[in-house]
Amino acid sequence: MDRLVYTAMTGARHILEQQATTSNNLANATTTGFRAQLDSFRAVPVQSEGLPTRTFVVDSTVGADFRAGPIQTTGRSLDVALRGEGWMAVQSSDGSEAYTRNGSLKVSENGLLQTTSGQTLVGENGPIAIPPQSEVAVAADGTVSVIDTSQTKPGPANVLGRIKLVNPDTRGLERGTDGLFRQKSGLPADPDVNVRLVDGALEGSNVNPVDAMVNMISLGRQFETQMSLLKNAENNAAKATQILALT
Rank of each mutant, 00 (worst) to 15 (best):
K106L: 13
E85I: 02
V107L: 09
S93T: 13
T115R: 03
G103F: 00
G86W: 01
E85Q: 15
T100D: 07
W87N: 01
W87D: 01
V107I: 14
Q114G: 07
G103M: 06
L112D: 12
G103C: 08
Y99V: 03
S108W: 08
A98F: 04
W87V: 02
S108Y: 07
G103K: 04
A98W: 00
M88V: 05
L113D: 08
Y99W: 07
K106R: 15
Q91R: 14
D94V: 00
S108I: 07
T116G: 06
L112Y: 14
K106S: 15
V90D: 04
A89S: 06
N110V: 09
K106C: 11
E85T: 11
S92P: 00
G95P: 02
A89I: 00
W87F: 14
A89V: 02
E97R: 10
V107Q: 12
V107S: 12
E97M: 10
S93K: 12
S96F: 06
L105R: 02
W87E: 00
S96P: 06
Q114W: 00
E109A: 15
S93G: 09
E85N: 14
N110P: 05
A98Y: 00
N110Q: 15
G103N: 08
G103D: 08
L113I: 02
S104L: 07
G86P: 02
V107N: 13
Q91A: 11
Q114E: 15
G111Q: 09
G103P: 06
S117Q: 15
G95M: 04
D94H: 00
A89C: 09
